[in-house]
Simulated assay, not measured.
Amino acid sequence: MKGAESGMSALAKAMGMAGGTNPAELLRDKLISKGFDAFIYESPVDKMKKQIEAGEKPDINIYFAGKNAIADFVKDMDLVITLCDINEGRPSFGLSKGGGEILWYVFEIPVVAVSCGQPTMLADIPQVRTYINAYDTKDSTFDALVENLMTGEEAFKGQDPIDSFCGLFDARL
């Protein structure tokens, strides 16, 4: 999940100041190193952006064809980890409904949302059943996250220092 790009983050990218490891790639690589078959979902909008960057005419049909039947979407997955790397503002959901950007499939497959920068993201995705505040995207944080995800029910022992439910009753359901 991505946030709406701010003017400052766009400027940093344009000046070559933004960078570092993509948190989704870092998490994927750590899961693969533990033997999991992990991949990063690519939205129809991201596919169209790649076509434009490659100098190709974007295929608008990708957007409309990006909708999935539930059985097709979940057939090859055991778990979905939604990484919320948003440092400011609110999430920006993709335009495609029926794709992976909007968490519509929480009853069909286990979903874990991991918030890296904005600990109050649960208010924007209250339908998710498991929500973890990692607070940052440091390598050591992701090592601990992957290790704790693998060790079972007793893995997370920390206390959340804020009200991640944001006082909302539906975030607790």
Rank of each mutant, 00 (worst) to 15 (best):
D72E: 12
P110A: 10
I81L: 00
N68Y: 10
K67E: 11
G94I: 03
K138R: 15
D85A: 14
T137M: 04
T141L: 01
L103F: 06
V80M: 14
V74K: 14
V106M: 11
T151K: 15
P91M: 06
D136T: 02
A123S: 13
D124V: 04
E147V: 00
D78H: 01
C84I: 07
I81V: 05
V112F: 02
D72M: 04
G152W: 00
L83F: 09
Y105H: 09
I70F: 03
M121Q: 07
K75F: 03
D143V: 07
D136E: 03
L103Q: 11
F107I: 11
M77Q: 13
T137C: 13
G152K: 02
P126D: 03
V146Y: 00
V146D: 00
E153Y: 12
F142Q: 01
S92P: 03
N148E: 03
G55V: 12
M77T: 07
N133A: 03
T130F: 14
Y63H: 04
V80P: 06
V106C: 15
V80F: 02
M121L: 10
C84F: 03
A69T: 13
A144G: 03
E108Y: 10
E56N: 12
V74A: 12
K138D: 15
C116D: 09
F73T: 07
Y63M: 13
V111G: 04
L95W: 12
P110N: 05
D124E: 14
I81F: 00
C84R: 05
S140K: 11
D78T: 04
G152I: 02
V111R: 05
A54D: 15
P91H: 05
R129L: 05
K97M: 12
V128Y: 00
E153W: 09
V128Q: 01
N148H: 07
E108V: 05
W104C: 09
A65V: 00
N61F: 12
P126T: 02
Y105V: 07
S115I: 11
A69D: 13
E154I: 01
R129C: 02
P119Q: 06
P110L: 06
E153G: 12
G117R: 08
S115F: 09
F107H: 14
I132L: 14
L145G: 03
M150W: 06
S92G: 08
L83G: 06
N87K: 10
G99D: 13
Y105M: 05
D59G: 01
N61R: 14
N87S: 12
Q118M: 04
I132G: 08
E108N: 14
V106K: 09
V74L: 12
E101M: 11
T137R: 07
E56Q: 14
W104R: 11
V114I: 14
V74T: 15
V80E: 09
I125K: 01
S115H: 09
I81Q: 00
A54C: 01
E56W: 07
L95E: 11
P126E: 06
K138Q: 12
K67A: 11
D136A: 05
Q127L: 10
L79M: 09
V80Q: 08
Y63T: 01
F64P: 00
Y63C: 06
E88A: 09
V111M: 07
A134R: 02
L149I: 05
E56V: 08
P126S: 02
G100D: 05
R129H: 13
L79A: 06
F73C: 07
I132Q: 06
E56S: 10
K97C: 07
I109F: 07
P91I: 02
E154D: 13
T137E: 04
P119W: 02
